[in-house]
């Protein structure tokens, strides 16, 4: 009887740790959110970039984008808010705030700012696309030589 209880406690401890790790995975996963202000084509219609726009993601400081600008935010977790502040044709300052969800294993997503401004109520898929870094940017082969030197000993200062 007592053995059974110990086992139960241990199993539930392991379970709690497993759940904790899943939670940590979700909240700790880092994503790069690119914000891009260039001509985009949405539903066959071309949308011009904005003259000057201020974008911020979650609670991070806002970035200013001129046409054809691209910048990035490093965020953790899946759910985020993007806030876009711009002046429309009638010189009124407008602010759009939308929240979005990044797919869990997606390292980079790109917010297409002109598309978001054109479709402020539109579906997330209209203005948010998954982004894969070009391979040449990833395979930076500086030092590929593996040093498995067990002679290092104490000689290198730490």
């Amino acid at each position: 009887m007592k053995m059974g209880r110990t086992l139960l406690i241990r199993l539930s401890a392991v379970l709690v740790i497993l759940i904790l790790s899943v939670v940590l995975f979700f909240i700790g996963k880092s994503h790069t959110v690119l914000v891009d202000n260039k001509t985009v084509t949405v539903e066959g219609r071309e949308i011009a970039p904005l003259k000057l726009v201020e974008v911020s993601v979650s609670k991070q400081g806002a970035l200013e984008l001129t046409p054809r600008d691209r910048d990035k935010f490093e965020v953790t977790g899946q759910k985020h808010r993007v806030t876009v502040t711009y002046t429309d044709d009638a010189w009124n300052e407008r602010t759009i705030t939308r929240s979005f969800t990044v797919p869990l294993m997606q390292d980079m997503v790109m917010v297409l700012v002109p598309a978001l401004v054109a479709h402020p109520e539109g579906d997330q898929a209209l203005w948010l696309e998954n982004y894969e870094a070009p391979t040449y940017a990833v395979t930076m082969s500086e030092s590929d030589e593996v040093v498995t030197d067990d002679m290092a000993g104490l000689i290198t200062g730490i």
């Binding site: 700790g28 996963k29 880092s30």
Partner: peptide, 19 residues
């Protein structure tokens, strides 16, 4: 592992410890 998965910050450290 956590560097590969891209888990950062304190959650990353705790996860590395759990692993």
């Amino acid at each position: 592992f956590i560097s590969d998965w891209g888990i950062v910050g304190i959650p990353g450290m705790v996860l590395a410890m759990i692993i």
